[in-house]
Amino acid sequence: MAGAAVLERLTPRVPVTWRVATVRAVVDETPTARTLVLDVPGWPGHVAGQHVDVRLTAEDGYQAQRSYSIASGPEDPGLAITVQVVPGGEVSPYLAGEARPGDELELRGPIGGFFAWRVADGGPLLLVGGGSGLAPLMAMLRHRRAQASTVEARLLASVRGPADALYRAELDALGPREGLRVAWTYTRERPAGWTGFTGRVDAGMLAAVAPPPEAAPRCFVCGPTPFVETVADLLVRAGHDPRAVHAERFGPTGS
């Protein structure tokens, strides 16, 4: 994990200050997830994989903050976050249900830099996403497309059912071509006539999708904590360099 890019990391950065963001558009992705496209004047730009902090203010001044991965590529107009409703949550039901174009919120970032990929970093790439963990991986693929990169990339997307398949149409249009292959696994409910993977990600699925360890892929795994724990362990056991396995976990531990 010790970075080779230490000097680059330590170069001066734009201060991480709160900026007013305006909702430009909302896109219903699934019954429980929505993408907000935001206009953020002064936004300093980001690297695919980074995240932002969002702050909401109620009329009486009460505030709440949460973090969301950036789903848009650095080249895209507008900054997109995809918000999955957390049952009983405080912020996600508002963002994924109430917010509409013209509404204002505060945002700061970009934050992070380990779970991040630029075309210049090279490949091959192995992306493994569970549920809304697809968001930062989508940012990487959007960046790859915008740069017309042909870096070998494999995406394994794990979702509960067809209704939960985030970005499905866009991903279908992206691959398979130019070194990109996208595989889905449906853990609970499969589409009619589905002949692809079903069930939770396992060693066989990863072996079928991932570039071999000898190809030294950069691995990015994002999803709920138990999902990421399982997939990261499987990758290490399959012989991938632990230092090449980048992980982003969210939600409770499930234990």
């Binding site: 007013v20 909401l56 405080e90 509404d103």
Partner: peptide, 10 residues
């Protein structure tokens, strides 16, 4: 900070 219309919070 701007008020986020309709945000109640908990």
């Amino acid at each position: 900070p701007p008020i986020s219309r309709g945000f109640q919070g908990r």
